Amino acid sequence: MAGHSKWANIQHRKGRQDAKKAKFFTKAAKDIILAAKAGGGNPDDNSSLRLAIQKAKAVNLPKDKIENAIKKGTGEIAGGDIIEVVYEGYAPGGVAVLIEAATDNRNRTVAEIRHLLGKNGGNMGEAGSVSWMFNKKGVILLNEEQYSEEQVMEVGLEAGAEDILHEDGMFAVHCAPTDYMAVQSAFEEAGMEYESSEMSQIPENMIEVDVETGRKVMKLIDAIEENEDVQNVHVNADFPDELLEELAG
């Protein structure tokens, strides 16, 4: 679990840089379309849509594009023919890879993902081959320089958080999907700003990798994340501190 916490922090830092890239607009819009499609276009009644809109605003997706994405999801305008798919496979070193995508062409996307895995030392797995190694959780990161552990625990645990990890200058608050919005709202109501907040796939067990293998895994992750259909990539690699410090720098 500790390795995931460090990697989550690195992903967050990468995300702030990547947010400037146009492809993240596409991914944010797809999140909104899917959320509206599943639960309706009113964010007050649809917590998934509320979260998708928050993430879209974080990458500066224009208001009109947010509104259009909602309308696509509810069927008011064309363009909402998007489905969620999950691909499973392995990266170098036997590291498990779980890839969440949103696409309007399943055949195209699976071919592209298979190609990217093979090109970067990985391979596609069968459905269920690695998903059992991960648990879906809400993950909220707060900066330890802003809040004490006591503050985070008091608010988080009272709202239903399951675990609070302290690592790499961050408090990582984990909670069940059903409690996610309640925990996030509790921090907001307490006036506590979080660095990031998202649903994630937490690995049950980590695989330790050396620096060389870790770089290969990172290269694979970067290549897959470049695909505009890919929403999230999760791995169970416990990356060496040396490599994480290199990335953080």
Rank of each mutant, 00 (worst) to 15 (best):
V211M: 06
A172K: 04
S48W: 02
I140D: 02
N60W: 05
V86D: 10
L34E: 04
G41D: 07
A190S: 14
I32V: 11
P240W: 09
Y87G: 01
S47V: 11
S185W: 04
Y194R: 05
I224A: 08
D104V: 06
V211L: 10
D238G: 03
D45R: 14
E88Q: 13
H234P: 00
P92R: 06
Y180F: 15
N60P: 00
S196H: 09
P203K: 10
E195Y: 11
V152C: 06
V233A: 02
V59E: 06
M218Y: 05
L247G: 00
A35H: 04
Q231P: 00
F25K: 12
G3C: 08
E145G: 02
E100K: 14
K65H: 09
A102L: 06
S185G: 02
N205E: 15
G3Y: 02
Y194V: 03
G122Q: 05
N236H: 09
I53C: 06
G128I: 12
N135T: 15
K136C: 03
M170V: 12
L244Q: 11
K6T: 12
A161L: 06
E144L: 05
I99S: 02
L142E: 03
N68S: 11
A2P: 04
V95M: 04
P92D: 13
A58D: 13
M170H: 07
M1T: 12
H4G: 04
D238L: 08
F24T: 02
M199C: 03
E193D: 15
W132G: 15
S47K: 09
K136P: 02
R50L: 09
E150Q: 14
E154Y: 09
G191Y: 05
M124S: 11
E228T: 12
Y180D: 01
E188C: 00
E84I: 00
I53L: 10
V183L: 07
M206A: 12
G40T: 10
A96P: 00
G160S: 08
K20N: 10
D81C: 03
A176W: 03
G118V: 07
G73F: 08
E149C: 00
N135M: 12
F24C: 00
E162G: 08
L157G: 01
F24D: 03
F171P: 00
E154H: 11
C175A: 14
K216W: 07
E188L: 09
K119Y: 13
S197F: 01
S200T: 14
G3K: 02
R16F: 09
G191L: 06
E167T: 11
I83Y: 05
A172P: 01
L116W: 04
Y90L: 15
G80D: 07
A237C: 12
Y90G: 08
K55I: 06
E126T: 10
A58P: 07
P92V: 05
D18H: 09
